[in-house]
């Protein structure tokens, strides 16, 4: 076993030197803005300008505005649902890529990558065309005559449409992380499980699933974080009736030009996202420790 330096032990001076460029970059363009953002929340907005007053007024208004917390809850719920939807769609795709279509997996990866690289706003508008009252989905349903001629799914500009958009846009993250962890599972392990008397289902449950869990969790984290900050999908597909945090923050900064409040909302979103991730991580660790 390689000897690992315990945390807090003496760090070689050379290592500090190597870390300096990356560290200063992080500090200047990540640490400093966050501190500024935090300071901004204690100011006030007067005539669309920031007034340096040092008060808790912004925070008081944040905690006394139920619509903000409703938006936060909605964002959390949407993100959790997006993680579930992405997992449900990505796992079979990744599994088939690794097991059944391994001869074509390079082609499939390329296709997914292209879909991933094409502009997100454009793709999201594509969903509008698909879901619209006179869109492709309704047209197909009517053409198949499974619904009356004036039928409308009514999906466009709803939360469901937003969820669809978020799921579609973030799906590649989940597919790739699960694909990587699945392809790292040695096939001999499954054969060893069969040799031990396991059925295919049992071997999948006992071997494949636990071994690809890190990939599932990493994909889940990607999807969750990106979904918490999503903006385009809600704006294009959601219709703006039930705003999520991203929309709220954008409006506060851009339309209302209330920077202290915008900063406070950002801090709230940031904190809740990190806290949720931490709790989820702790729970998973606890669950895995038990088995």
């Amino acid at each position: 076993m390689t000897g690992m330096t315990p945390l807090g032990a003496e760090v070689p001076r050379q290592l500090l030197l190597y870390l300096t460029p990356a560290g200063s970059w992080q500090l200047a363009f990540y640490g400093v803005p966050i501190v500024l953002l935090l300071l901004l929340t204690f100011q006030a907005s007067e005539n669309f300008r920031v007034a340096w007053v040092w008060s808790l007024d912004t925070w008081i208004s944040v905690f006394s505005a139920p619509h903000i917390w409703l938006a936060l809850l909605r964002t959390l719920a949407m993100s959790a649902l997006a993680v579930l939807c992405c997992f449900a769609l990505a796992f079979p795709v990744a599994y088939v890529m690794v097991t059944r279509l391994s001869a074509y997996d390079a082609h499939i990866k390329l296709a997914i990558l292209f879909a991933f690289l094409s502009d997100m706003v454009l793709k999201t508008y594509g969903w509008v065309l698909f879901l619209d009252q006179e869109g492709i989905l309704n047209w197909i349903l009517r053409a198949l005559a499974v619904v009356p001629a004036d039928y409308d799914t009514g999906l466009v500009f709803t939360l469901a449409a937003t969820l669809l958009g978020i799921t579609a846009n973030l799906l590649p993250f989940m597919i790739f992380t699960i694909y990587l962890s699945l392809s790292a599972v040695d096939r001999d392990l499954l054969l060893a499980a069969y040799d031990s008397g396991a059925s295919h289902l049992r071997a999948f449950r006992d071997i494949t699933l636990p071994l690809c869990l890190p990939g599932v969790l990493a994909g889940g984290a990607f999807v969750f974080i990106l979904s918490m900050g999503s903006l385009v999908e809600e704006r294009v597909l959601g219709g703006g009736k039930d705003p999520m945090m991203g929309t709220l923050i954008r409006q506060t900064f851009e339309t209302r030009v209330n920077w202290p409040l915008g900063a406070a909302l950002t801090v709230v979103l940031f904190t809740v996202t990190i806290a949720t991730m931490a709790i989820a991580g702790w729970q998973i660790k606890r669950m895995r420790g038990r088995t």
Binding site: D186, D188, L189, L191, A192, A193, Y194, D195, S196, G197, A198, S199, D206, I207, P210, L211
Partner: peptide, 27 residues
């Protein structure tokens, strides 16, 4: 393989990496 009276030792051993020695042998 599950229904054959054979036991296999694989070239790369194929021990289950997430299971303890006890769980591997007892599987």
């Amino acid at each position: 393989p599950a229904r054959r009276p054979t036991g296999m030792v694989f070239q790369r051993l194929a021990l289950f990496p997430h299971m303890s020695m006890r769980a591997n042998i007892g599987y």
